[in-house]
């Protein structure tokens, strides 16, 4: 059984540009396992959309190769598009038609039988809270409603792999959270692979089992959000921790600085702020605080956010 949904090998795409060519994607090597939510992160113009287009077989790579669900993107684009769903940069909705007509059209495109098509349309529109408005012309809808409908369209034929370009863009926080939950459930229960691009790194952190960071067409890092954070800490050489309690004096802070893993420590408002060597454990530090008469109520090891890790990766390349 194929357990890799997407594999790319030296995937490269050049576009014609005035006075030469522009490399939009540069030797991308990537493996996306089946059944996970995979986040593809990068600043604007970094090559995310080009990657999706290449993976869908909509563009011919200049060099390298890619396989999606076991199909070659150069020669088996039809098979790839048969088994995938896509929400691209634009919602791609027919704004002169109703929501129901939009989904019905794509249901027919994917040969869903009439009964199944109607049931599936109802199920998805119900889940998105749009069923009562299914007869309305989409052009009059808000951006968020259109986005929800476009996501429903991408999932309509129950594809094995879904490409989502900024799926939560334009959604209110409640709808975005509901969509995140649906996507996570889809991946977990039905082993659907979700390949999503997002600028919302908090979204990626909550939803993705693996992320890749791309900039100027080059892959900077790939791994779980935790791995990326750890890599950032390792790169920086330190991480921050806090101890909250009583009796946490500047003298106590000074005593901690003699420990080998403590780079710096200071006392601030009933707490100690400690700069630890990357990967160091907190237990010896806490033991030292207690031994010195400090009363510990809470210990927090600060975790860099994915956003910090992302910014670090991107800025390091500049």
């Amino acid at each position: 059984m194929n357990t890799t949904a997407i594999t790319t090998h030296h995937l490269t795409k050049d576009f014609r540009a005035p006075g030469g060519s522009l490399r939009a994607l540069d030797n991308l090597d990537l493996e996306v396992p089946e059944g996970i939510v995979f986040g593809f992160l990068g600043p604007n113009g970094s090559g995310k959309t080009t990657t999706i287009r290449l993976l869908l077989g909509l563009l011919e790579p200049t060099a390298g190769q890619a396989r999606v669900l076991g199909f070659d993107t150069r020669t088996q684009g039809d098979a790839i598009r048969m088994h995938t769903g896509a929400l691209l940069e634009q919602t791609g909705l027919y704004e002169r038609l109703s929501a129901e007509d939009n989904l019905d059209y794509y249901g027919r495109i994917y040969h869903l039988p009439a009964g199944q098509r109607q049931a599936r349309i109802r199920e998805l529109l119900d889940a998105m809270g749009l069923y009562e408005r299914r007869k309305e012309i989409v052009g009059s809808w808000s951006r968020g409603m259109k986005q929800k409908l476009a996501v429903a369209r991408a999932l309509l034929h129950q594809p094995r792999l879904v490409f989502l370009d900024e799926p939560t863009a334009g959604l209110d926080p409640v709808a975005a959270a509901a969509l995140r939950e649906d996507l996570a459930q889809l991946a977990a229960e039905r082993r659907v692979t979700i390949f999503l691009t997002t600028h919302n790194l908090a979204d990626a952190e909550r939803l993705c089992q693996q992320v890749a960071v791309i900039r100027a067409g080059q892959l900077l890092a790939v791994g779980s959000p935790d791995e990326l954070r750890q890599r950032m800490a390792a790169h920086q050489g330190s991480q921050q921790a806090e101890i909250v309690g009583r009796g946490l004096t500047p003298e106590l802070a000074a005593r901690l600085e003699v420990l080998p893993d403590v780079l710096a420590a200071r006392a601030e408002d009933q707490r100690l702020v400690i700069e630890l060597r990357a990967g160091a454990e907190m237990a010896p530090v806490v033991a030292q605080v207690v031994a010195a008469g400090g009363m510990v109520e809470e210990v927090r090891k600060a975790k860099a956010s994915l956003e910090e890790a992302f910014l670090e990766l991107v800025e390091n390349q500049e």
Binding site: T84, L88, Y94
Partner: peptide, 14 residues
């Protein structure tokens, strides 16, 4: 013009 072409091309239609 109405940004529906790419989604259509990304479908299974030949």
């Amino acid at each position: 013009e109405r940004h529906t072409l790419e989604t259509l091309l990304a479908s299974r239609l030949s």
